[in-house]
């Protein structure tokens, strides 16, 4: 753990809140953000998610159970409200797919609608698509592990043609796992935290 906390302009530490909604493993995201010196906590309280400098929506698992978990805890509304208010929000992997209008997973699931478009099953190559792949622009390799991908007009980066990052307003979603992408991933997260601070 590196000792220095990340200070914002007013001298306080950037507060990052990771949404806990029953989708498992939040530890790696938590550890990666803490390494950057952010004040990190995992929460399922909508008020905490609303108030954070940066909210993070991680996620592995299926779209239907994840959306149900977000709705049951009031987190879906909190995420929509903070993005509408222009507050920085990061979705990772399934977190990107949940941000879309809909997903074709589990027979069709309505998403958060933070981004236009939908999540579709990968139809080429070996699925799940697992491994490190270059992301353009930039060309750096990040780690992916997914069977569905975003189709969206808000795409800002691609990997082998697949949407790797999408942005709209204060929301940014990534298909790769920055918390598992070594030095490149740490640099990516640092940029997101800096933009939020």
């Amino acid at each position: 753990m590196c000792g220095r906390m990340r200070r914002k302009g007013d001298g306080t530490v950037t507060g990052v809140r990771i949404c806990e909604y029953g989708a498992g493993n939040t530890l790696s995201v938590e550890v990666a953000l803490r390494r950057l010196g952010a004040d990190v906590a995992v929460t399922s309280e909508p008020a905490d998610v609303l108030a954070a400098d940066l909210a993070v929506l991680p996620g592995v698992g299926s779209a239907a159970s994840a959306m149900a978990g977000l709705e049951a805890r009031g987190l879906a509304g909190a995420l929509r409200e903070r993005v509408a208010a222009g507050r920085p929000t990061l979705g990772i992997c399934l977190g990107l797919q949940l941000a879309l209008e809909q997903s074709e997973e589990d027979g069709g699931v309505a998403g958060l609608g933070l981004l236009p478009g939908r999540a579709v099953r990968l139809r080429e190559g070996r699925v799940p698509r697992i491994g490190w792949a270059p992301v353009e622009p930039g060309g750096e390799a990040f780690y992916f592990a997914h069977s569905y991908a975003a189709e969206t007009s808000a795409a800002t980066a691609r990997s082998e043609g697949i949407v790797a990052e999408a942005r709209l307003g204060s929301f940014v979603g990534v298909q790769f796992h920055p918390e598992k992408s070594g030095a490149a991933g740490a640099r990516y997260l640092e940029r997101v935290v800096r933009e939020a601070g």
Binding site: R126, R129, E160
Partner: peptide, 8 residues
């Protein structure tokens, strides 16, 4: 396809 992986 993603890059080939080396897994110790």
């Amino acid at each position: 396809m993603p890059l080939p992986r080396l897994i110790p």
